[in-house]
Amino acid sequence: MSALASRLRRIDPAIAQLLLLTVLVFAGMSFLEPRRFLRPYVFESITFVAPELGLLAVAMMVTMLTGGIDLSVIGIANLAGILAGMFFHAVGGAHGPGLAGLAAGPVLVGVLIALGIGLLGGALNGALVAKAKITPILATIGTGQIFTGIALVLTGGPAIVGFPRSWGAIGNGTLGGVAVPALVFLLAAGAVWLILARTSFGVGLKLIGTSARAARFAGLRTVRTVWLSYVLSGVLASLSGIILSGRTNAAKSDYGVSYLLQAVLIAVLGGTNPAGGRGSVPGIVLALIALMLLSSGLQIMRFSNFLVDFIWGAFLLLSIALNALRTRRG
C-alpha cells in the first residue's frame, strides 16, 4: 500500500490531473448517455478522428519545449495534402479508376512529397526562429499565411477532391481491426516520445527550454537543436495533413482551421509549459483522449459544433487556471 502510495506520489501532478479528468469525463458521459455513449462505434470513430489532431498537438508541444510555438501547422498540413493531391491528379488523372487505383509506387512518392513539404516548411520556420531570431509567434503566423497562400494560389480556392484508394486507406482503413490513422499516430507519438526522452537531441531540447543561456555555456548546439524542433514539428504537421486528406478524400487550403486552438489546448492541458522546459508525449495522448471523449459525448448529447468550440475555449482557460493554482501551491 505504501509502495503504491509513494509510486502514485511520484507521478507528475499534471498527468495525475489528466487521468482524473479522463476518468471523470468518461464516467460523466457514461452516466448521462449510457445507451448512446457506451457503444463500440463511439470509440472506434474516435480512433479515426483523433489522430490528425493528436499529431498537431504533439507538433505544438515539441516547439513549446523551447518556449516557442508553431502556428503554421495547419498551413503545412493543408499544403502537404494539396501538393500530394495535385501530384496524384497529374499522374492518375483528375477522376476515375486511374486515380483511385493508383499503384503503391506513386502513392509512396505522394507520401514523400507531403512529408517533404513538412520538412521544408519546418526548416523555414526553424531558420526564421533559430537563425534569424524572429519571435516564434510572428514567424509562424507569417509562414502559416504563406503556406496557406501558396495552397490557395495552387488550387484557386476549391478543394482538391479524389485521392487514390491506398492513400485513403491511411486515413480510413483498418489493420487487424485497428484504425490505420490510430496506428500511424501511435507510431509517430511513440517515435517522438523516444526522441524526447531518450536522445541527446530531446534532452538537449528540454535543457534549452529550461535555460538557453546555461545551454550555451554547457556547449549544447542550441541553434541547431531549436531548428530541428521546428523541422520535426513540420514533418508531424504534414503527416497530419496526409491523414486528414486520406480520411476526407479531399484537400483544401482552409481545412481544419479550428484545429489550431485545439492543438494548443491539448498541448497545454497535457502539461506542456508554453514558456518552455516542460512537456511530454504521454501527457498529450491523455489530454487528447480526454477531450475526444468529451467532444463525442457532447455530440451525442446534440450540442452544436459551435457550443463544442465554446467548451474547447473554456476548457483551455480552465486548464490555465488549474495550472496556475497548482504551481502557486507547489
Binding site: K206, L207, T210, S211, R213, A214, A215, F217, G277
Partner: peptide, 9 residues
C-alpha cells in the same frame, strides 16, 4: 545560477 545550472532539472 544563470550561466551554469539548469536550476529546475
Amino acid at each position: 545560477l544563470t550561466e551554469g545550472l539548469f536550476l529546475p532539472e
